[in-house]
Design a protein around this nucleic acid. Structure first.
Length: 678
DNA sequence: ATAGGGTTAG
């Protein structure tokens, strides 16, 4: 008999299923009673060889089934992703009166968690309590804690934890993980501190999770403490520890530190690469993120949906259409084009770059139209002035099985504003008030104030702001903008005072007020404001425009003569100015904020605004090609340029799409999609 | 003879 045992063990070791089957039939023939005392050996062998079906067939024939054999059957099915059958086995076990033990529970609880059947799990938990295993066995206890936290029943997990007598590392870690995955970061730290106090030694799993909590709390001090603990425990080189370390640093805003961690890695996993990229994007280091992504591709490391959605986010922040399209191709190639995160990121990218059709085609092929993707699409429509389309999609939300949330309403108010749908916007705003599931935020008020301002209802807008608790600068500035457009000088002055209280030294406000005085013809005040601006030495970020022509980005600053094609640009620009003057363009020197005295100087500074340079360059470069031109500006497009671009689009028959800090302007045939309100 | 916990996105 021992001879057979060693042969079976041999088969199990070498995973030779065919030989094991031969052995099986031989042993059954030669020894009729073999099953009752050697069957478990064969079952074990079959499991090792990966044939659960052989194991199950034999198991069902066995007369006396030992608890260990039950457990092996159950856990092997779970490990092969056949949890359904494992649950059947567990049921049979109870029916036959075999008493589950600690091994059974730790296996079966995991299956309940994976299958998402809470009530079964709770019943098994009850049974474990009755058998006294909950408080006495660390394996069972951690399986229960883990199961509850996977169900989001974090309170239940905590209660079980408290009852367990011997709280070992794994049990503590299970709870820490549960807390940290459900946003209870301080609680996770508390469990950790308590554990350390009790002299339980943390391992890499524990530290990884605690680091994540520190990161999410922005708790750099504890994060660094754990880093030193990691070094002391000699766990520094474990990939997962390094990944969480890197994540902790980037969540605390310490990009340099996360770079240091990354650069010292012996090996970076897919997750590590991704975490690093995510951190860079979140800290506004998009260009670095893109180069790290390229490096990742060069290392033949496959990106996953996390990587791709993150890098697409970077592309849309910088409106890097070219890179974004390459990443889009990668998403299609790797088959994650239907992923909702990737989809939403692509919609944002194309929306931001003014390609509404591309955004829509991504949206239409999404596997799952979740609320975030819908919101992204509505926002893309809004940004680009497609108000009706935004409203139609808004109407469809309920049919698609969702309830609009705060973000939906922010986008839809923006859509109404950008498309001039004032009545529709007012109706939607009052519907938010009546919907008690949605909390009205400052964003909603800002959107509404903007909208009212558009239709000269400045008084109403001012009333609205009174409803807001602690209105912030953004809100006041929105109202101020409405005043500026409609020449409400007195109200504007009051608002300016408010803004100065909230944010002293805000140059944008000075500029707005100066413009306002200028348009009301109050020249004395204009002069006063300008000297104030000069006295305060307020630095404004330089206006900059860029344009993508033939896959090359060209950047321009106002009055910038440094471009290699400066000569051609200025020639084209002057020609354009003269031609559009004939069409009716009238230079508007109110938009000159530099302190220039003579009129000629004023005019030329106006002509050399960065957006005009960018457009002149693009027109010259593309010559007779009738492609549309896309320019980007870091600030709001100025009124004079706006009018000029309208004429240029009429003159040249070219579509010009300009993205400024706030929104898109689609110029076509002398008309802009913003209908002159922005 | 069978068993437990970790890292990335709107």
């Amino acid at each position: 008999m021992n001879f057979y045992y060693s042969l079976i063990a041999q088969c199990a070791h070498t995973k030779s299923l065919t030989i094991l089957r031969a052995l099986h039939s031989h042993v059954i023939k030669s020894c009729a009673s073999y099953l009752s005392f050697g069957g478990h050996k064969l079952i074990h062998g079959y499991i090792k060889c990966g044939s659960l079906d052989d194991a199950r067939k034999l198991f069902d024939e066995m007369p006396n089934r030992h608890i260990v054999t039950w457990n092996s059957m159950i856990s092997s099915h779970i490990n092969h992703g056949r949890s359904r059958e494992a649950l059947d086995l567990f049921g049979n076990m109870l029916v036959e009166g075999a008493l589950p033990d600690a091994y059974t529970f730790s296996a079966i609880l995991k299956a309940f968690a994976e299958m998402g059947v809470l009530s079964h799990g709770q019943r098994a938990h009850g049974l474990a309590v009755v058998l006294g295993l909950e408080v006495l066995d660390g394996f069972v206890a951690s399986a229960i804690v883990d199961m509850y936290s996977k169900f989001g029943r974090i309170r239940d997990a905590g209660l079980v934890f408290q009852r367990v007598l011997d709280k070992d590392v794994v049990l503590c870690t299970a709870l820490i993980v549960g807390y940290s995955q459900h946003g209870f970061y301080s609680e996770a730290l508390e469990v950790f501190e308590d554990m350390v106090d009790r002299g339980v030694k943390a391992n890499e799993y524990t530290l990884a999770s605690v680091l994540i909590s520190c990161g999410n709390l922005g708790d750099l001090v504890n994060g660094q403490l754990i880093h030193s603990l990691l070094v002391k425990s000699g766990l520094e080189s474990v990939v997962a520890s390094q990944t969480s370390l890197l994540t902790m640093y980037s969540k605390c805003g310490m990009v340099e530190d996360s770079m240091k961690v990354f650069n010292h890695l012996a090996y970076a996993s897919q997750v590590t690469w991704t975490s690093f990229i995510v951190g860079l994007v979140q800290n506004g280091r998009e260009e670095v993120a893109v180069s790290v992504f390229r490096e990742m591709m060069r290392c033949s490391m496959n990106p996953n949906p996390f990587t791709l959605s993150s890098i697409l986010q970077a592309c849309s922040s910088l409106a890097m259409l070219e890179v974004g399209e390459q990443v889009h191709a990668i998403t299609l190639k790797t088959g994650v084009g239907g992923n909702k995160y990737v989809g939403a990121a692509l919609i944002n990218l194309y929306g931001k770059c003014g390609y509404i059709d591309k955004a829509r085609s991504v949206f239409e092929v999404l596997m799952e139209l979740d609320l975030v993707s819908i919101n992204s699409m509505i926002y893309a429509y809004s940004q680009n002035g497609f108000g009706q389309e935004a409203l139609q999609l808004f109407e469809r939300i309920k049919k698609l099985g969702h309830e609009p949330n705060g973000m939906t309403f922010t986008s839809i108010l923006l859509a109404c504003k950008n498309a001039g749908l004032v009545e529709e916007g007012c109706q939607i705003f009052s519907s938010i008030r009546n919907n008690h599931n949605i909390e009205l935020t400052k964003d909603h008020f800002a959107g509404m104030i903007d909208l009212l301002g558009r239709s000269k209802r400045v008084e109403e807008a001012a009333k609205l702001i009174e409803e807001v608790r602690n209105p912030d600068v953004v809100l006041w500035r929105t109202l101020l903008n409405a005043c500026r457009i409609h020449g409400e000088v007195e109200m504007a002055e009051k608002i300016i005072k408010k803004i100065h209280e909230l944010a002293p030294g805000d140059w944008g406000t000075h500029v707005l007020l100066t413009n306002l005085y200028a348009s009301a013809g109050k020249w004395n005040q204009v002069v006063e404001m300008k000297s104030k601006i000069r006295d305060l030495k307020l630095k404004k970020s330089p206006a900059m425009s860029w344009v993508d022509v033939d896959r090359e980005v060209h950047t321009f600053m106002a009055g910038d003569f440094s471009h290699p094609r400066a000569h051609e640009i200025f020639y084209t620009l002057h020609e354009l100015v003269e031609k559009v003057k004939i069409l009716g363009y009238n230079p508007d020197t109110r938009f000159v904020l530099q302190h220039l005295d003579d009129d000629e100087m004023k005019l030329s500074s106006l002509y050399y605004h960065s957006e005009k340079l960018a457009i002149a360059f693009a027109l010259w470069k593309t010559g007779s090609r009738k492609t549309s031109i896309r320019i980007f500006k870091n600030l709001r497009v100025c009124g004079d340029c706006h009018s000029w671009i309208k004429f240029v689009s009429l003159l040249t028959g070219r579509d010009i799409i300009a993205r400024d800090a706030n929104r898109f302007h689609h110029f076509k045939g002398g008309i802009c999609s913003c209908k002159d309100y922005w």
